[in-house]
Computed example of a mutant assay.
Amino acid sequence: MIEFLTSRSAALLPQKVTGHLGWLRGAIGAALGIACAGAITALVLKTGSVGSGNLAFAWLVAPMGASAVLVFAVPASPLAQPWPLIGGNLLSTAIGLGFGQYLGSPLLATSFGVGTAIAVMSLARCLHPPGGACALLCALGATGSEAWGWDHMLPIVFNVIVIALAGWLYNNLTGHSWPHKAKLSPAVRTSPDIPSTHEALEEVLAEWNEVLDVDVDDLDALFQALRRRINLRNSKKAE
């Protein structure tokens, strides 16, 4: 059990405190993003003062915490890009509300809602884990005593838009392009009969039959940079 729990975490490189991908940068960004999302949503919807316990609408929804982790802490992840953030959350919200209103049963609405949300996000190329939480939350809200309607999408819409704008501004100001762009590396010369690195990587991923949380372009750039570094070391040793 211990080996199972630590096998993946041991592979994670420790993050520095500062720097354009230090953990402090991500923590501050997430705090600012959530603060802006809550304050602006409360102001726009005129739900009352922030912190009040008697609001017509929520000024923040819980899945935005998970979205903030992705957008500010791992902004290079394919799951953290603008379209997954916006499309994943909003499509899943609509799906959860729809199933909740149509089925009426919390158990059926949540199970069908989350499953359908995953399918739709995958087909729309906007897979975003917090989207599953949005579908679950809205299915429960629609089948609960408050009987959430379509107007309950509004807080989520404003939350998502503000976090997207905050992520774009903060990530780019702190040295990380967002939307993420793969770092381009000079191509390493290969024999004409050897397939390109990008093509070979796609073949390997297809053979593994796994979904990895990394873009093929990033893998290609990483492999090219690694091969250049190895070639440089070998050439220095040969001198």
Score class of each variant (00 low, 15 high):
Gly141Met: 04
His152Glu: 02
Tyr102Met: 13
His176Glu: 14
Arg125Glu: 00
Lys183Gly: 13
Ser185Thr: 15
Lys183Glu: 15
Leu91Cys: 03
Gly144Lys: 15
Val160Tyr: 02
Thr197Gln: 10
Ile163Arg: 03
Ile156His: 00
Ser185Val: 15
Gly100Val: 08
Val204Glu: 07
Val114Asp: 01
Phe158Met: 09
Gly144Gln: 11
Leu123Trp: 09
Gly98His: 04
Lys181Gly: 11
Val120Asn: 10
Pro186Tyr: 03
Gly100Cys: 05
His128Gln: 04
Leu169Glu: 11
Trp168Met: 10
Ala94Glu: 00
Lys181Phe: 07
Pro195Phe: 07
Gly131His: 04
Asn159Cys: 02
Thr174Ile: 01
Pro179Val: 08
Pro195Glu: 09
Pro106Phe: 03
Ser196Arg: 15
Cys134Ile: 12
Leu169Val: 03
Ala117Val: 10
Leu103Asp: 00
Ala124Met: 10
Ala182Trp: 10
Gln101Asn: 09
Ala94Gly: 13
Leu137Thr: 02
Pro84Gln: 00
Trp178Asn: 03
Tyr170Gly: 01
Gly87Cys: 04
Ala182Asp: 12
Asn171Gly: 07
Val120Leu: 11
Thr110Gln: 08
Leu173Tyr: 13
Leu127Ala: 06
Phe112Met: 11
Thr110Arg: 01
Pro84Ile: 00
Cys138His: 13
Ser122Asn: 02
Met153Glu: 09
His152Cys: 01
Ala124Leu: 10
Ala200Pro: 15
